[in-house]
Amino acid sequence: MDKVFGEKIGGLDYQIRKGVYAIIFNSAKDKVLAVQNSRGHYFLPGGGIENEESYQECLEREMLEETGYNVFLGSFIGNAKRYFQSTKNEPLLNDGYFYLAELLDKMQEPIEDDHFIKWINIDSVRELLVHEHHYWAVKEGLKG
């Protein structure tokens, strides 16, 4: 069964955005890697699938763009969706695919200069991560 978060408001035409996201814990599993944007919002690293990318290709590209690191893709955690409205008030449905992952070598400086890598405490994930389905995925990843 699909995990669905957020409220679907009747009469709105939701654009579906399929994305792939990494759950990366530190060795003690008390922190998770997040990306903070210039507005101060936290997200899991990852993003939308472009063209005919595989999930792995998407996550590898997004990780390089956002963090500058290569990533090892581990086990699949699950799929969860969230209805929300973007900052421009566009109705969106984020269809997220979540994987455990590990950081490998730093290859470059991040391309997206308004994104900052932050290790956030597991205890504060719920209030810091913007999307509920990202929080759900972190909780699921901790079970592994």
Rank of each mutant, 00 (worst) to 15 (best):
E52P: 00
R39F: 10
Y83C: 05
N51Q: 10
H115F: 12
F84K: 08
K31V: 10
G10F: 06
I23W: 03
Q15D: 04
V35Q: 15
N94M: 09
L93V: 06
G11Q: 09
K106H: 05
I120V: 13
N51T: 01
H133Q: 08
E62V: 00
C58V: 04
Q56D: 14
F84H: 08
G6A: 11
G47M: 10
L44D: 07
K143E: 12
L92G: 04
D123Q: 11
Y83V: 01
Q36V: 06
H134Y: 12
H131E: 11
E60V: 01
S75C: 00
I9A: 15
N89L: 06
S27A: 13
T67V: 07
E102L: 10
Y69D: 00
V138Q: 09
V4W: 07
K18M: 08
A80Y: 00
K139G: 02
G78R: 02
E140V: 01
F116P: 00
E127S: 10
L64A: 05
S54T: 14
L100A: 05
G47P: 10
P45Y: 03
F84Q: 06
F72G: 07
A34K: 01
Q36S: 09
G46R: 12
W136E: 09
S86R: 06
A28I: 06
K118C: 11
G48Q: 10
V71M: 11
E65T: 08
V35S: 15
Y55L: 14
S124R: 13
I117W: 07
Y42M: 04
K8H: 02
A101P: 03
I24S: 13
L100V: 01
E60M: 05
D113N: 13
S38K: 11
W119T: 01
E90K: 07
G6W: 06
Y69T: 00
L64T: 01
Y135L: 05
L73K: 15
R17E: 14
I120Y: 12
G78A: 06
L64G: 02
R82E: 13
A80E: 00
V20N: 07
L33G: 11
G68P: 05
S124H: 09
I16G: 07
E127L: 05
Y97E: 01
E57W: 06
M107F: 11
V4M: 15
K31C: 15
A28D: 11
E140A: 15
L93P: 14
K29V: 00
E50Y: 04
I49S: 15
A22R: 03
D123I: 01
Y97R: 05
K143Q: 12
D114F: 08
Q56M: 14
I117D: 12
R39T: 08
R39E: 12
G74C: 02
N79F: 05
G74P: 03
N121E: 15
R17V: 14
E132S: 14
K81S: 11
H133P: 00
K3I: 03
L129P: 02
L92E: 04
H133E: 09
V125I: 02
R82Y: 04
R61F: 00
Y69C: 02
N37A: 11
E112A: 13
R126V: 03
W136M: 11
A80F: 00
F25S: 09
N94I: 04
E52Y: 09
P110S: 10
Q15F: 06
L104S: 09
D123V: 01
R17N: 14
F72K: 13
N89A: 05
I111Y: 13
G10Q: 15
